[in-house]
């Protein structure tokens, strides 16, 4: 097993990316916490060569995906989704553990208008449901759904523009 200092370093280096990855697979917060912990425990007990950060991150993700599919007793659909999600993570987030996307979104949220920012605050900060958001904004539930879709499209376009321009 790795020395204590190494354990702390490995966990600190990879925990954010692994947790985000598990949430992408479909874990809620609590399950993502538990499975991220279990993933570290499994590979640290097993022992491995931490010779390359990207290789270690990939090994952690493979193990985490395996544990997730086991925990969920995943059927074919979930396995297929996990495979696609893994490819997407490699393409969009693996190089910086998803930190770049989070930071880009922070910048993009600032460019939204007042009502759109309020919507993001209610949905993603206060974790309000569509019904609560509808009554807070004075809209119908369907209008909230549609507004949310539009705001997310705007944010995605903003992030992609930011990524294209260094």
């Amino acid at each position: 097993m790795a020395p204590r200092a190494d354990i702390a370093r490995i966990v600190r280096t990879h925990q954010a990316g692994l947790w985000r990855y598990l949430r992408l697979l479909g874990c809620d917060d609590a399950l993502a916490d538990d499975l991220a912990q279990e993933t570290f425990v499994v590979i640290l007990r097993k022992g491995f060569d931490d010779y390359d950060q990207a290789a270690t991150a990939r090994y952690l993700r493979t193990t985490a995906r395996f544990l997730f599919l086991k925990a969920k007793r995943a059927g074919r659909r979930m396995v297929a989704y996990a495979e696609v999600a893994d490819l997407l993570w490699e393409e969009q987030a693996a190089r910086d553990d998803g930190e770049g996307l989070v930071q880009a979104l922070k910048g993009c949220i600032d460019t939204l208008d007042e009502r759109q920012r309020r919507l993001i605050d209610l949905r993603y900060f206060k974790q309000a449901g569509r019904g609560e958001i509808a009554s807070a904004l004075g809209l119908s539930v369907m209008a909230v759904k549609s507004l949310l879709r539009r705001v997310k499209d705007t944010l995605r376009a903003c992030v992609e523009t930011k990524r294209r321009t260094p």
């Binding site: 354990i7 702390a8 966990v11 600190r12 925990q15 954010a16 947790w19 985000r20 949430r23 992408l24 479909g26 917060d29 916490d33 991220a36 912990q37 570290f40 999600a85 997407l88 993570w89 969009q92 987030a93 998803g98 996307l101 989070v102 930071q103 979104l105 922070k106 949220i109 993001i120 605050d121 949905r123 993603y124 900060f125 206060k126 974790q127 997310k152 944010l155 995605r156």
Partner: peptide
């Protein structure tokens, strides 16, 4: 869509990765 939801949770300050050390 899920990837953006996860990142938005964090960007908006709602949820963040835990310290698991």
């Amino acid at each position: 869509d899920k990837l953006y939801d996860v990142a938005l949770d964090e960007a908006a300050g709602g949820k963040a990765p835990p310290d698991l050390v």
